[in-house]
Amino acid sequence: MAYELHIVRPMEIALEEWQSLCVSDPSMKLENEFARRNPVTGETIVSSGKNSAIWTSPLTQQQYLFDYRRGMISFVYSDAAIIKAKKIAKALAGSIEGDEGEAY
C-alpha cells in the first residue's frame, strides 16, 4: 500500500473550504467517481471518491488524487504531489504530515 500524507491544521478543514479551493484552481477538478485502467491487466477499476479532486500537473500532465475526509486532505506520497500539497496547505493555513505525525 502506498504511503499517505495529509494536509491538516488544528481546526478541521471545512468541506466548503476544500470545495472552494478546488473550484478556484483550474488545475484541480472535483470528482465523485474515478475510473482508471490497470496498465498490466487492462481492467477498468471504478471507485467512489466523494469530495476528492484530481490535480493535473501542468508540467507532466500526470494526474494525482487529493482526497478530502474527516476534516483533512490526504494524498499518496510523490515528489510532484508534495509540491502541490504545500501550495494547498498554505492556502488553507495548514501543514503536511505523514501517517505517524511527521512533518513534511
Rank of each mutant, 00 (worst) to 15 (best):
L15R: 15
D25I: 00
I96K: 04
Y64D: 04
K29I: 02
P58M: 06
A93N: 15
V76D: 12
A14V: 05
S47F: 08
S24N: 13
L5A: 06
S48F: 06
C22K: 00
P26S: 10
Q61C: 02
D79G: 09
G71R: 04
L21K: 02
Q63F: 00
M72H: 15
G94I: 10
I83G: 08
E12I: 09
T60L: 02
M28V: 00
P10I: 03
S20D: 12
G42D: 03
C22M: 06
Y64A: 00
R37N: 07
K86T: 05
G94E: 11
P26E: 13
S20K: 08
K87A: 12
N32A: 07
P58R: 09
T56N: 06
K90F: 08
S48Y: 07
E17N: 11
G98L: 04
F34V: 15
G42A: 03
R36S: 11
L15H: 12
G101A: 04
R69L: 14
T44W: 10
K84D: 05
K90M: 06
A35M: 11
A53S: 09
K87V: 04
R9E: 05
T56P: 01
L15Y: 10
K29C: 05
A80H: 07
E102H: 05
S20Y: 00
A80I: 12
I88A: 08
D67Y: 10
G101Y: 01
Y64C: 01
H6D: 12
T60C: 03
T41R: 01
L65E: 15
Y104K: 03
K29T: 10
H6T: 11
S78I: 01
A81Y: 03
A81G: 08
R37V: 12
S27D: 14
C22P: 05
